[in-house]
Design a binder for these strands. Structure first.
Ligand code: DGT
Ligand code: MG
Ligand code: MG
Ligand code: ZN
Length: 579
DNA sequence: GCCGTTTTCGGCCCGACTGTTTTCAGTCG
């Protein structure tokens, strides 16, 4: 099995956990975690970089030692340091860290004192009241451990899709804003950064009496459990399991608190180090020169004092945004207002829930200039995919509809299946009648990388191909991406004038943020497609825009920001290099 | 283990909440 980036990252994470349980130097532990994060953030496979003879020490947080460890891991399939660590400590110990309230020191104590190496053994020991015999552990801690283990086995620590968290988040925010004494309130954390999933909700609040508000928020009707509640922070668990952190600060600290609570953690650390460089200190209360406040009422003030422009939350992942800001090199990010239409739409002709006319009306309501209709092709039988005859009839329907419409153009397309051999599911005679062809892979998802890449490249060589929908096929939390050599896919996209989709379905978001960023950097045109199966799903567009922003994209990087005339030119046949 | 317009050695972000503690360690954000 070839070593993937996520294998390397996971191995470093596990190693860091074991080292920490073994009481290693915390900064060394941190170094392994930083390296894991760097590797995970790469769109390109590390093994491709090594094969190309590239120097891994160019990557942040990777020095000579770790570069060597990675190279040997990729070569042998074993991370020697991890093997050594599991000789010292049972690997199962790291599972204890999933229990809220158990960190490396307690895991170590449980192992040394009671020989515990698994969650089950810990539950037994707690039920037998043996945990409280250890120094540092009392009755309450023992009870909490049992409670948290129960919770852990009930719902494993899965993350929530951003779109699924929105309703709860916004209603909770509105409720908090109505509390007496609340001045401002915002949802911060990964939610504000628009990550595709959120681990919890983080809400920052300003108030003249923070302690009173911190207590008051525990009285929301959906609170299942108050995990902790102090003078300035309260942590809740809602019915349904979602956790909420609420941080309340005085007015003057709102900007600094919002910055802190928006994160990411690594962005915070990077900015705090920058503050140190000025001889200052940055925390959630402000930016300080000894006891003098330098900034803090707004985020802008904090960045400005550090000689930086305000950085959009979507970029705050410590992926080069501070350096870009410093060089005045931040992109002007695409905005929902930039979108002029949707090019990936389904109707009742296949598995959509609304007719062609209804989808067109919904597009008009959204103020769009164009709507591209792209039902499935015949190979997708469960979706009642179109054959040439049925597609022909749909094209006639579109002609009739276009006659009637004066403020919206319906474009003719089809989401044509890319078959196992890379050929297309419908004959050229019908594809030639479309404004553009979308290609998508829906079957044989398990092909090996070489074959899968070859298949996609073959389809991309078709002169009519213009968009590849959901290129990796991943479903968040459910299905891994197909194995692809994205670098070659990007090259083919450029050579053949093909746009790669950021599919805006909340569980797809495919390409993801980092791959879309790499595509753009390579010179590829992106397109944000809702893949709407109903009028309401046209509003998924904003989820696609969120990820486009996380990918550092500007409007000019995205096909469906173009006016219809320009769009038609870009989609015109004969633009393929070969044809 | 990494890294350098303060450093190639000596730093590495900074603070809240809880429980067990008799002055603070551990965990988490
Ligand atoms: N300075 C600093 N800030 C932190 C640290 N941990 C968390 N934060 C800040 C930045 C985070 O975005 C914010 C909320 O913490 P969370 O644990 O909820 O993380 P976040 O929301 O980013 O991701 P999530 O989706 O919840 O896993 O608190 C830390 O160790 N240091
Ligand atoms: Mg969070
Ligand atoms: Mg949180
Ligand atoms: Zn589709």
């Amino acid at each position: 099995m070839p070593v993937r980036n996520r294998d390397i990252a996971n191995a470093f994470e596990t190693l860091a956990d074991l080292l920490e349980i073994g009481d290693a130097n915390p900064f060394r532990v941190r170094a392994y975690r930083n390296a894991a994060s760097t590797v995970r953030d790469q769109s390109r496979p590390i093994r491709d970089m090594l094969a190309a003879g590239e120097d891994l020490t160019e990557l942040p947080g990777i020095g000579d030692d770790l570069a060597g460890q990675i190279a040997r891991y990729v070569e042998t399939g074993h991370l020697a340091r991890l093997d050594a660590a599991t000789d010292e400590l049972p690997a199962g110990l790291t599972a204890l860290l999933d229990i809220n309230g158990i960190g490396p020191r307690r895991a170590h104590a449980l192992y040394e004192g009671l020989g515990i190496t698994s969650v089950d053994e810990l539950a037994d020991a707690a039920r037998q009241k043996r945990v409280r015999t250890l120094s540092g552990f009392g009755e309450k801690t023992e009870q909490r451990i049992l409670h948290e283990i129960e919770r852990l086995v009930r719902h494993s620590p899965a993350r929530t899709l951003l779109a699924d968290a929105e309703e709860m988040a916004e209603s909770l925010l509105a409720w908090i804003r109505r509390r007496v004494g609340v001045d401002q309130a915002t949802i911060a954390g990964s939610y504000r950064r628009r990550r595709e999933t959120v681990g919890d909700l983080d809400i920052v609040v300003s108030a003249s009496d923070p302690a009173a508000v911190s207590r008051a928020v525990t009285r929301h009707e959906d609170v299942a459990e108050v995990i902790s509640s102090g003078e300035t922070r309260t942590t809740l668990r809602l019915r349904g399991g979602l956790q909420v952190d609420i941080r309340v600060v005085p007015h003057g600290a709102y900007g600094a608190a919002m910055h802190y609570f928006t994160g990411s953690r690594d962005h915070n650390i990077a900015l705090r180090r920058r503050a140190q460089g000025h001889g200052w200190k940055l925390n959630e209360y402000g930016l300080f020169d000894d006891d003098q406040t330098v900034a803090g009422d707004t985020e802008e003030s904090v960045y400005a004092a550090l000689s930086l422009p305000w950085i959009p939350p979507e970029l705050r992942e410590n992926r080069g945004e501070i350096e870009a800001a410093e060089n005045d090199d931040l992109p002007t990010l695409i905005d929902a207002q930039d979108i002029r239409g949707n090019l990936h739409t389904h109707t009742t002709a296949t598995d959509g829930k609304a007719s062609l006319e209804e989808m067109a009306e919904a597009a008009r309501e959204r103020g769009w200039e164009y709507l591209g209709i792209s039902d499935h092709s015949r190979a997708v039988r469960v979706a009642n995919g179109l054959d040439a005859d049925r597609l022909t009839r749909q094209l006639d329907d579109i002609d009739v509809l276009n006659e009637r419409l004066d403020d919206l153009v319906i474009l003719k397309s089809c989401e044509v299946d890319i078959l196992r051999d890379g050929s297309l599911d419908l004959p050229d005679t019908i594809l030639e009648r479309l404004d553009y062809v979308i290609g998508a892979i829906h079957s044989d998802l398990a092909l090996a990388r070489r074959a899968q890449t070859q298949r996609l490249l073959e389809a991309m060589a078709h002169p009519l191909m213009r968009i590849i929908a959901h290129p990796t096929g991943r479903l968040i939390g459910q299905r891994s991406p197909i194995a692809l050599d994205l670098e070659r896919v990007f090259e083919a996209a450029i050579d053949n004038h093909i746009a790669l989709e950021i599919n805006a379905q909340p569980k797809r978001l495919d390409l993801n943020d980092q791959d879309a960023r790499a595509a753009r950097d390579a010179g590829v045109m992106l397109v944000i497609g809702t893949d709407a199966h109903s009028p309401a799903q046209l509003d998924f567009m904003r989820h696609g825009v969120d990820q486009a922003r996380r990918a550092w994209l500007s409007a000019s990087d995205v096909l469906n920001t173009r006016p219809v005339g320009e769009l038609r030119k870009l989609l015109a046949p004969g633009r393929s290099a070969g044809g």
